[in-house]
């Protein structure tokens, strides 16, 4: 028996919208830790890791140890679009061997209750082990600013060079029509903490990434006012959006390398 009640149902809607362009189908794992997912895009360039901790749910029951539920994200998105933004979402499933999951949507006033049953699928998921890493640079900045930069640069070029120095974090691209550079300096003298840009740098780092993926990651912007970008010269970048009181969604992207 699995039963998860999420008062802030809009969080789940936003999470799925941020994933569905990169992943077609994925196993959601339910364990005592929480509701989680790890999935790679089909070309094995980007990986998404989601955790919604069990204590972030109003009610969390998962009796079956680790219980994977394979879902087609396009179908899940269709169903979650039927939930109102203020609805409470409850996810129910009988457990391993059962091939359906039920989503129940309750309006805040309890006047309307809907349930949608969705077929589960068997998915051979490939799970990558990601060790804890020491990063050369960790930058926290407003998520809307990061999204704006990725969108702006993708009208000029296909790749972005992200460089962190003492001066700040620089995003550069070049294309047929010209070049673009955007530098964000550390800025902690802001009225609201979420507007700050904070740079922790052990050593300068510069890496090149496909902008198409970065732009997809920014679909998670509605989940958090800030984004954390962690870079090391010999590792994929980690772009993390914290999900208030509940967990995170992390996007890992392999760099472009010199041939």
């Amino acid at each position: 028996m699995l039963e998860l009640r999420l008062v802030q149902g809009s969080l789940l809607k936003k999470v799925i919208e941020s994933l569905k362009d990169l992943v077609n189908d994925a196993n959601f794992d339910c364990s005592s830790t929480g509701f989680s997912l790890q999935a790679m895009d089909s070309s094995h360039v980007a990986l998404m890791s989601l955790l919604l901790r069990s204590d972030g749910f109003e009610h969390y029951r998962c009796d079956h140890g680790n219980f994977p539920m394979g879902m087609k994200l396009e179908n899940l998105s269709k169903i979650l679009k039927c939930a109102g933004n203020d609805d409470i979402i409850t996810i129910k499933a009988d457990g391993p061997g059962n091939d359906t999951v039920t989503f129940m949507f309750e309006s805040p006033s309890q006047e309307k209750i809907a349930d949608y049953e969705m077929k589960l699928m068997d998915i051979d998921s490939e799970h990558l082990g990601i060790p804890e890493a020491e990063f050369h640079a960790i930058v926290r900045m407003p998520s809307s600013e990061f999204a704006r930069i990725c969108k702006d640069l993708s009208s000029i070029g296909d790749t972005v060079v992200i460089s962190v120095t003492k001066e700040g974090i620089k995003f550069s691209t070049k294309g047929d029509i010209g070049t673009a550079n955007v530098v964000c300096r550390q800025n902690t003298t802001v009225d609201k903490p979420e507007d700050a840009t904070i740079i922790e740098m052990q050593q300068p780092v510069s890496l090149t990434f496909a902008l198409r993926y970065m732009n997809s990651f920014t679909k998670a912007t509605p989940l958090s006012n800030t984004v954390t970008i962690s870079l090391s010269s010999d590792l994929p970048v980690v772009v993390e959006y914290k999900i208030a009181e509940m967990g995170y969604i992390r996007f890992y992207l392999a760099p472009k390398i010199e041939e």
């Binding site: 094995h44 990558l128 082990g129 990601i130 392999a254 390398i257 010199e258």
Partner: peptide
């Protein structure tokens, strides 16, 4: 020219 690296070259399958 740049080549897109794969995640498989950084992380191991479990």
């Amino acid at each position: 020219p740049e080549m897109q690296a794969s995640l498989n070259s950084f992380y191991l399958f479990l």
